[in-house]
Design a binder for these strands. Sequence first.
DNA 1: CTAAAACCTGACGTTGACGTCAGAGGCAAG
DNA 2: CTTGCCTCTGACGTCAACGTCAGGTTTTAG
Lengths: 120, 120
Amino acid sequence: MRIGELAARTGVSVRALRYYEEQRLLTSERSPSGQRVYPDSAVDRVRMIQHLYAAGLPSRSIEPLLPCVMTGEVTPELLKRLRAERQRIEGRIDDLVQTRDKLDTIISVASAYEGRTCPR
Amino acid sequence: MRIGELAARTGVSVRALRYYEEQRLLTSERSPSGQRVYPDSAVDRVRMIQHLYAAGLPSRSIEPLLPCVMTGEVTPELLKRLRAERQRIEGRIDDLVQTRDKLDTIISVASAYEGRTCPR
DNA sequence: CTAAAACCTGACGTTGACGTCAGAGGCAAG
DNA sequence: CTTGCCTCTGACGTCAACGTCAGGTTTTAG
């Protein structure tokens, strides 16, 4: 498939896909005329990239992890990094849960005041 | 307390504190000579700001929420925003949990290969 | 064959949360 | 009084993940 279709199927922009390639997160074959050609598996790969971005990892962290994440192949070095990133994510989750709970308390207390407006 | 001490006690830079003020997330009294003077409560406020930043909220979202989050006072309008942001955070948590679990699977599978090096 | 749509490579613009530097004033210690 | 650290206000720099535009080629639909 070409870049436009990959963009449509993953929901990310064409520009973003070219950017991923620039960051070596994504590779492509080229047609004789120079257009990018992707295998179907690229869809999954792009989705994984988005997941890792969403988890707050920068390109440079994603790049070394990605081949192993996609293929299941791994070196001890990569395993260390995977575990480290897992811990980072865990930490972010804890932080978010704390913040969510704090908002929940505020919301529930505040809801008691509904109807009669702000006690100011 | 002055800005340097607040920075030390919260672990954020002096520059960041001035930036928070610029974004109207933090206010300060001024000494006769123009130096910022903060009450002790500023420490908690700065910590809350950091929590909300960590939750992915931009300054513009934090600003209207902060007074109510600190005082517990609330208008129906703010309550709506609080609930919306709570939902956003919840979504981010779900996403992170998914990614963490995916990493866990990879790690556990990969761990089976430990000792004998990368199967490449 | 031709026009529209999709693709290409640069290259500059954008946004948010600060970092950093310049130049100048304030303040506690010796 | 001066030395040295803290603080002040601009103002420009940075970094990541793209957006956007220019100028040109390729593919596809009619």
